Amino acid sequence: MSDRFWIGFFILLSCLVGVLHASAGDSDLVYKDCVEECKRTGCVKDKCFQHCRFSSDGVSIEGPWYMQEPLYLQWKQWDCQSDCRYHCMLSTEKEREILGTGPVKYHGKWPFKRVFGIQEPFSVAFSALNLGVQFHGWLSFFILLYYKLPLRPQNRKPYYEYTGLWHIYGLLAMNTWFWSAVFHSRDVDFTEKLDYSSAVALLGYSLIVAIMRTFSG
């Protein structure tokens, strides 16, 4: 009986994984057709992208796409796929709005609009604010220890024995929010890995510090 239960459970789980593989937006046929058409023609309706123009062997006709942008715009580093997905998302959402249907997620994210090349401006702003708070806290801690509290006369080091631990914590926290801001400004595989790994490192270190402080007496 138990074997049948587990077999049924795993079959159901595998079905759910298949269902949850794609978001509602990027599984929409209108959106998918738009992206494929954009990759083939380099255009979404009246808007065209130079870096989506390829020869038959898959090489960009006009050289590397990022060299076709003005210097002050090259930092965006948007590629053909990103631009096609973004503008097809906007186009599809306009059609959904006309039909009276609500927004849906695309590739795991709700629809967004770029601002000055930044993918998620509000998330970037909040991450930057968190970074500022962490920096202020770390700097205040540093000033308190080395300029306001007495130091050991023999080596001019703080009496507080966990100084090093909290310095490392502050640096890890600032690193985490920095990469969070970068990730939300430009979501690519590289920035995603740095964002997630930084967050995991901070959480892991926080656990270690908590255990050390709990059992240190």
Score class of each variant (00 low, 15 high):
residue 131 L to I: 12
residue 3 D to A: 02
residue 52 C to T: 03
residue 202 L to R: 04
residue 149 L to F: 14
residue 88 C to Y: 07
residue 172 L to K: 06
residue 148 K to Y: 08
residue 53 R to D: 08
residue 9 F to R: 00
residue 7 I to K: 11
residue 72 Y to Q: 11
residue 135 F to L: 15
residue 165 L to V: 00
residue 125 A to T: 13
residue 167 H to K: 03
residue 29 L to E: 10
residue 9 F to G: 00
residue 204 G to L: 11
residue 111 P to A: 14
residue 145 L to S: 08
residue 60 S to K: 09
residue 212 M to Q: 12
residue 189 D to G: 10
residue 19 V to D: 00
residue 158 P to H: 06
residue 57 D to N: 14
residue 171 L to V: 15
residue 115 V to H: 08
residue 186 R to L: 05
residue 86 Y to A: 10
residue 126 F to I: 15
residue 153 P to Y: 07
residue 185 S to E: 03
residue 52 C to Y: 05
residue 90 L to H: 01
residue 154 Q to F: 10
residue 185 S to R: 07
residue 56 S to F: 04
residue 178 F to C: 09
residue 51 H to I: 01
residue 63 G to I: 09
residue 102 G to E: 13
residue 163 T to S: 06
residue 195 D to R: 14
residue 75 W to K: 10
residue 201 A to L: 15
residue 80 C to A: 12
residue 102 G to L: 09
residue 183 F to W: 05
residue 147 Y to A: 05
residue 6 W to R: 04
residue 57 D to Q: 09
residue 195 D to A: 02
residue 177 W to L: 04
residue 32 K to V: 09
residue 54 F to N: 07
residue 174 M to A: 08
residue 72 Y to D: 15
residue 15 C to K: 01
residue 54 F to A: 04
residue 97 E to Y: 14
residue 188 V to Q: 11
residue 211 I to H: 00
residue 65 W to V: 01
residue 115 V to N: 06
residue 134 Q to K: 12
residue 128 A to K: 07
residue 147 Y to H: 05
residue 211 I to Y: 06
residue 50 Q to S: 03
residue 67 M to T: 14
residue 101 T to R: 12
residue 30 V to E: 14
residue 189 D to Q: 13
residue 64 P to S: 00
residue 111 P to G: 11
residue 77 Q to A: 01
residue 61 I to D: 02
residue 3 D to S: 00
residue 190 F to P: 08
residue 176 T to D: 07
residue 119 Q to K: 11
residue 115 V to Y: 13
residue 28 D to W: 05
